[in-house]
């Protein structure tokens, strides 16, 4: 289940979308989120869906893979669909069976909301699937750059994020080791009533926290020794490179907005 879940995962690859500047991708997704709300009729939603599928196609991510990986999200989607279907009582009555009554407007709303939800999830998944977490961090750092003026610690936030990302696998390994060590001592986390299981997690968390603090201390020392003094006067090793494709992607988005506006009821 966890292996198949692709929300927030990065799959290296070679496509136009993979090669785009992370800044362009982040801007693109944020603008897209806003633009989605321009659509308000069947035409608009059809165009949105088509556009999203085009982006998925360009990113060379297999649609099947995407749908399969987002299964838990679909459960939520279906739930929202039925919520709208059953509880909107406007327009003509289409169908009634006992206490269930489905109205035209309910069906419309249900479909529209589902599409909106779907394109948003697809678009953000394309962003995270095609961009390494560290590139996303870089992109965010540069995009938020102007906020340094109002004393937002942009560099520090980005560094925190990249260090957290860097230590996730290390801490996962460690959790595995502690788990085995506790199991070897006869602790049983996998079974028993809920209360017992929660209790069994405590001896797992405490050593994990202790070691995480030790790591943090060591890391701080190592960073200081290597001359880290905050963001001031630092240069960047990873350079971002804005290319024609990045500008074009934003132009494409402007085109989409125009088309959506044209078809808007």
């Amino acid at each position: 289940m966890m292996e198949k879940m692709i929300f927030g995962r990065f799959i290296p690859g070679d496509s136009v979308v993979h090669r785009m500047d992370p800044r362009a991708k982040i801007l693109f997704v944020f603008l897209f989120i806003a633009i989605v709300f321009v659509a308000n009729n069947a035409w608009g939603y059809a165009i949105l869906l088509g556009f999203t599928l085009l982006v998925v196609f360009l990113s060379k991510i297999r649609l099947y893979f995407l749908i399969n990986g987002l299964k838990p999200v679909f459960i939520l989607l279906i739930f929202t669909f039925f919520l709208h279907l059953f509880f909107t009582r406007e327009g003509d009555l289409l169908f009634s069976f006992g206490f269930i009554e489905i109205y035209e407007e309910g069906l419309r709303q249900g479909i529209f909301i589902s599409i909106r939800f779907l394109v948003l999830v697809f678009m953000t998944s394309v962003l995270t699937l095609t961009t390494s977490p560290i590139s996303i961090t870089d992109g965010i750092e540069v995009l938020l750059g102007p906020f340094k003026k109002i004393k937002l610690p942009v560099h520090e936030l980005a560094l925190m994020m990249s260090i957290s990302l860097r230590f996730i696998p290390t801490l996962m390994d460690e959790t595995g080791k502690i788990l085995k060590a506790q199991m070897a001592r006869g602790s049983d986390i996998g079974s028993g009533p809920m209360k017992e299981r929660v209790k069994a997690v405590v001896p797992l968390l405490i050593p994990l926290f202790v070691s995480a603090f030790k790591r943090a201390e060591d890391l701080a020392t190592a960073m200081e020794v290597r001359g880290y003094r905050g963001g001031e006067g630092r240069t960047r090793y990873r350079q971002l490179n804005w290319q024609l494709a990045d500008t074009l992607s934003l132009v494409l988005l402007a085109g989409l907005t125009a088309v959506l506006w044209y078809f808007r009821a």
């Binding site: 977490p133 560290i134 860097r166 030790k214 060591d218 890391l219 190592a222």
Partner: peptide
């Protein structure tokens, strides 16, 4: 300066 624990002094992503 290089310290004891290989994991705790690796700052970069790669």
């Amino acid at each position: 300066m290089v310290f004891q624990n290989p994991d705790n002094q690796f700052v970069g992503a790669t």
